[in-house]
Write a protein that binds this DNA or RNA. Structure first.
Length: 429
DNA sequence: TGTCCACTGGAAGGGAGGGCTT
DNA sequence: AAGCCCTCCCTTCCAGTGGACA
């Protein structure tokens, strides 16, 4: 009898659980919704520029700015896909994924809409190889001279009459990797083509990116510019409400949940992607708690967890040398060094390497590693001048010391030296 | 006002590792 | 197998710098 009752309870609980998510996928990053609230103007503008395709003209190159999670990618894909459906042609939307082919014999020039994310395809060679692959030309991962890859891309592209719209998402990555010459080539590619035509849509969340471009690329890429402003809290509420209708069962959310997710995300420069993460994770936590509804408490837990997971994941993937540099900073912070500078970090780092019998990198390289960690938000490094005592970076951990410690000490080499005490000046207070 | 510190950060290049062509 | 090419991680070299101090 006892057993039967508990099984009964379990079923009750499991049934309650089902009352939270209806379709979780709707809240994920890669989901392109059918409706994009508060982006009508941008959709309009983009469609207006691209519509010249239908008239057989090459649309201008377009440059799209806006911070992360402002709908740049979603809008671009949305409009691109709709265009292909309307005009006929071919659509490659995801980096390695889905191809959509629409045949419309009455339209003479088909449109190819190709989406690439330059965070993944981040060098000149890889980008050209990827584009060539979309054109049905396979190129080895490495080995060919770049100009040969370019040529084979151009040849494959020019096989038939078509208009190819190449979307380069996170285009700033190419510049950071010093691969911007590919942009120069791509913006001038039409002069190498007889039958096909290419137009480029560059997407970036770095507003300063354009300043560092070759002026010729800048003027060509920026023929049309579109700006995506951040969403404010009320707009985020609309977006979340719209998605939540599909993602959750009725009454699965407390009233305050969506406004709280929106408010948190609005604090982080109106990032809709982040807002959706808050909502999804909060739902998952509620589900695991076997709660009947998602509450504000779940959202707060979700917010902390997202931040912690990000930090843990980033540190875990550091190479050993970067982990040692970070461990040196951690020790200096732990033992209250008066000010953590590059020089001081380097001294502790060297000692840690000696104890672990590791190769010691140069200070120049360590300085770069510190800058990289600063970019990722793991540490905060500011260049300060101490007058007569030189110029250096002043470094602080950007995340809780205990969290960094937990992740680092899982590394076997660091675990062995975890009791090391650095010889440093102590703070007076 | 000039000096000088402790670096910063750009540039060039080496070499290991991956993979291609001939 | 030899000769290339590309990428990544790193070193070496060095000009440049903000501001305390003499």
């Amino acid at each position: 009898m006892e057993g039967q009752r508990s099984l009964d309870q379990l079923f009750d609980e499991l049934l309650i659980q089902r009352k939270i998510f209806n379709n979780k996928e709707v809240l994920r990053d890669h989901y392109t919704p059918s409706l994009l609230p508060h982006r009508d103007r941008q959709i309009d503008e983009l469609a207006t520029i691209l519509v010249s395709v239908v008239k057989g003209e090459t649309p201008s190159n377009i440059f799209i700015y806006g911070k992360t999670g402002t709908g740049k990618t979603a809008v671009t894909i949305h409009v691109g896909e709709a265009l292909v459906r309307k005009v006929g042609g071919c659509c490659y939307i995801r980096p390695y994924g889905t191809k959509l082919e629409i045949k419309r014999p009455e339209i003479p020039i088909p449109v190819w809409f190709i989406y690439t994310n330059c965070e993944i395809v981040d060098t000149q060679y890889r980008l050209l190889a990827k584009l060539a692959e979309y054109m049905g030309q396979s190129v080895p991962l490495t080995g060919w001279p770049t100009d040969k890859v370019y040529e084979s891309f151009v040849r494959a592209l020019d096989k038939e009459e078509r208009l190819v719209i190449v979307v380069l998402d996170e285009i700033d990555r190419l510049l950071k990797k010093g691969s911007d010459s590919v942009l120069y080539n791509l913006t001038r590619i039409n002069s190498d083509l007889k039958r096909a035509k290419v137009s480029i849509i560059g997407i970036s969340n770095d507003l300063n990116f354009v300043e560092f471009l070759d002026p010729r690329v800048r003027s060509s890429l920026g023929e049309e510019e579109l700006v995506f402003p951040p969403y404010y809290a009320q707009q985020l509420v609309d977006i979340l409400s719209h998605r939540a209708e599909e993602a959750f069962f009725d009454n699965a959310l407390d009233l305050g949940v969506i406004p709280l997710c929106a408010a948190f995300a609005a604090q982080e420069h109106g990032d809709a992607r982040r807002a959706l993460d808050f909502l999804r994770i909060a739902g998952e936590i509620a589900e695991r708690d076997r709660a009947s509804r998602v509450t504000e408490k779940h959202v707060r837990i979700a917010k902390n967890r997202i931040e912690q997971d990000r930090v843990t994941e980033v540190i875990k993937t550091f190479p050993t040398q970067s982990k040692f540099v970070l461990f040196a900073i951690l020790l200096l912070e732990k033992y209250n060094a008066s000010a953590i500078t590059t020089g001081e970090t380097y001294n502790v780092y060297k000692e840690l390497c000696r104890q672990s019998k590791m190769d010691i990198l140069t200070q120049r390289r360590v300085s770069d590693i510190i800058s990289e960690m600063d970019m990722m938000g793991i540490v905060n490094a500011t260049v300060v001048s101490k007058g007569r005592y030189g110029r250096t970076k002043e470094i602080r951990l950007g995340v809780p010391i205990s969290q960094v410690k937990n992740v680092l000490e899982k590394h076997h080499k660091i675990e062995r030296i975890s009791n090391f005490v650095p010889p440093i000046q102590r703070k007076l207070i």
